[in-house]
Computed example of a mutant assay.
Amino acid sequence: MTIYLQRKPGAPLASTVNIRNHQFISDAPIADGGGDEGPSPHELYDAALGACKAVSLMWFAKKKGIAVDDIHTEVTSDDSQERAGVYKIHTKVVISGTFSDAEFAQLTAVAEKCPVHKLMTAVTTEVTTTVERAAP
């Protein structure tokens, strides 16, 4: 999968993000020199974790026939030690529905194993970057 981003004309830091058939703006807050036209890259990173937990839980519940009515996910981050190599993310997932204690235990286990959670904690991610000069 390829995600395309392009600087938004006239905006100091904003980019238009294109993912499949979806388009949105990513920007920095005004305090950081942006126009606050959309979530920042850090916010998108954190949101990916919350979204993955919610999607994984709903997928699992549907697959197993567990009666989940709603999922509310909150993601809180602490970047105060990021420059020292520690970035803390806390997720809180509230699940409503009619399910047993055993089913709730299964859902809890799934929340800890969503693919993005694994990417953030248990996988070595290799990033390569190519920078090219645009043709005149």
Results as ranks from 00 to 15, higher is better:
3 I>C: 11
3 I>D: 10
3 I>Q: 11
5 L>I: 12
5 L>D: 08
6 Q>A: 09
7 R>W: 13
8 K>L: 15
9 P>S: 05
10 G>V: 02
10 G>Y: 01
11 A>Y: 11
12 P>K: 06
12 P>L: 06
15 S>P: 01
20 R>M: 10
22 H>F: 14
22 H>L: 13
23 Q>I: 06
25 I>K: 01
26 S>G: 03
26 S>K: 01
27 D>W: 06
27 D>K: 00
29 P>H: 05
30 I>T: 15
31 A>M: 06
31 A>T: 09
32 D>W: 10
32 D>Y: 11
33 G>S: 01
34 G>V: 02
34 G>W: 00
35 G>Q: 09
35 G>E: 15
35 G>K: 02
38 G>V: 07
38 G>P: 01
40 S>N: 12
40 S>I: 07
41 P>T: 06
41 P>G: 03
42 H>G: 14
42 H>T: 14
43 E>D: 00
44 L>Q: 04
44 L>F: 03
44 L>D: 09
45 Y>E: 07
45 Y>I: 05
46 D>L: 09
46 D>M: 05
47 A>H: 07
47 A>S: 12
49 L>G: 01
49 L>F: 08
52 C>D: 00
52 C>S: 00
52 C>P: 02
53 K>N: 08
53 K>R: 03
53 K>A: 12
53 K>I: 11
54 A>M: 10
54 A>T: 07
55 V>S: 08
55 V>D: 08
57 L>K: 01
57 L>T: 00
59 W>S: 15
59 W>E: 13
60 F>T: 07
60 F>D: 04
61 A>G: 02
62 K>F: 03
62 K>E: 10
62 K>V: 04
63 K>M: 11
64 K>M: 10
64 K>E: 13
64 K>G: 05
64 K>N: 08
64 K>Q: 15
65 G>Y: 05
66 I>V: 13
66 I>P: 11
69 D>L: 07
69 D>R: 10
70 D>R: 14
71 I>S: 02
71 I>F: 02
73 T>I: 14
73 T>C: 11
75 V>W: 01
77 S>Y: 03
78 D>G: 02
79 D>S: 09
81 Q>G: 04
82 E>D: 09
82 E>P: 01
84 A>G: 10
84 A>N: 10
86 V>E: 09
87 Y>F: 12
87 Y>T: 05
88 K>E: 12
88 K>I: 15
88 K>D: 10
89 I>G: 03
89 I>Y: 01
89 I>R: 05
92 K>Q: 13
92 K>Y: 11
94 V>Y: 05
95 I>P: 06
96 S>W: 06
99 F>D: 03
101 D>M: 02
101 D>R: 05
101 D>G: 08
104 F>L: 14
104 F>D: 13
106 Q>T: 06
106 Q>Y: 05
106 Q>D: 12
107 L>M: 01
108 T>S: 15
108 T>Q: 15
109 A>D: 09
111 A>G: 04
111 A>I: 03
113 K>P: 01
114 C>L: 02
117 H>E: 06
117 H>R: 05
119 L>M: 13
120 M>E: 05
121 T>K: 11
122 A>N: 14
123 V>H: 14
124 T>H: 14
124 T>R: 08
124 T>G: 08
124 T>E: 13
127 V>F: 03
128 T>M: 04
128 T>N: 15
129 T>G: 10
129 T>H: 12
130 T>L: 15
130 T>Y: 13
133 R>T: 14
134 A>F: 13
136 P>N: 09
136 P>E: 14
